[in-house]
Amino acid sequence: METIPAIEVTDVHKSFKTVHAVRGINLHIETGKFVAILGPNGAGKTTLVEMIEGIQVPDSGTIKIMGQTWRENEDQLRKIIGLSLQETHFIDKLTLWETLRLFASFFTIGADRCEEVLEMVGLREKRKAYVVNLSGGQRQRLALGISILNKPKILLLDEPTTGLDPNARREIWAILKKLKEQQHTSLILTTHYMEEAEQLCDHIVIIDQGIILREGSLDQLLGDVEIDIPPRIAERRKVTLDDLFTALTGRHLTEA
């Protein structure tokens, strides 16, 4: 049986003045799947997801969300999508609770759901704290909370854990894992941490310089290629996505 994919991206291009940021990307994402877009800084991840989010417009190619396009169905799509941008600062002098209530009101959602979300992202005891006084990890959890307020069918998170320490990162992973068990959400997250893609996602898309290098499940990706790492290192640790990336590009994922 043919079902409509959650996201269908066909031959999408996007250029800025001097940069060809996305050059011909195709994606097919099934409902309920967790997908990682893995790539180093400047690979075009943000540009790609923001086009999927309807925030940026592709120069060419088509993007369909549950079979609908941004041009024709923006109002409906806004209601079923949840997202967090790579960097957003909320209003400093609002409390966490007030910020949630504000964003909930955009979806005509009441206090009960805000309460639920607060619980899910583990920020109950911080509800009265001003946003400006939250730690980096807490702020990211707030952004995550806001992105799931409307129980989105499709959730897009742009580098949800960049800049966080390993503990804060694992907290976010735990929330996302729970989300996967509880709801039928399709997730796209971008990251340059290979562990994040390995831990959370069914499907990993490696991109660099605006094109897809490889995609597949973790096993497929690591099994597919001959990766040339010295035997002494191979004895001590498993082959990683970074090794794959290095084999493909000669660079590392987290290189500046």
Binding site: E53, G54, I55, D75, R78, K79, I81, L83, L85, T88, F90, F103, F106, F107
Partner: peptide, 8 residues
């Protein structure tokens, strides 16, 4: 940008 990415 974040706000207009909602039905606001």
């Amino acid at each position: 940008r974040r706000m207009v990415a909602t039905p606001m």
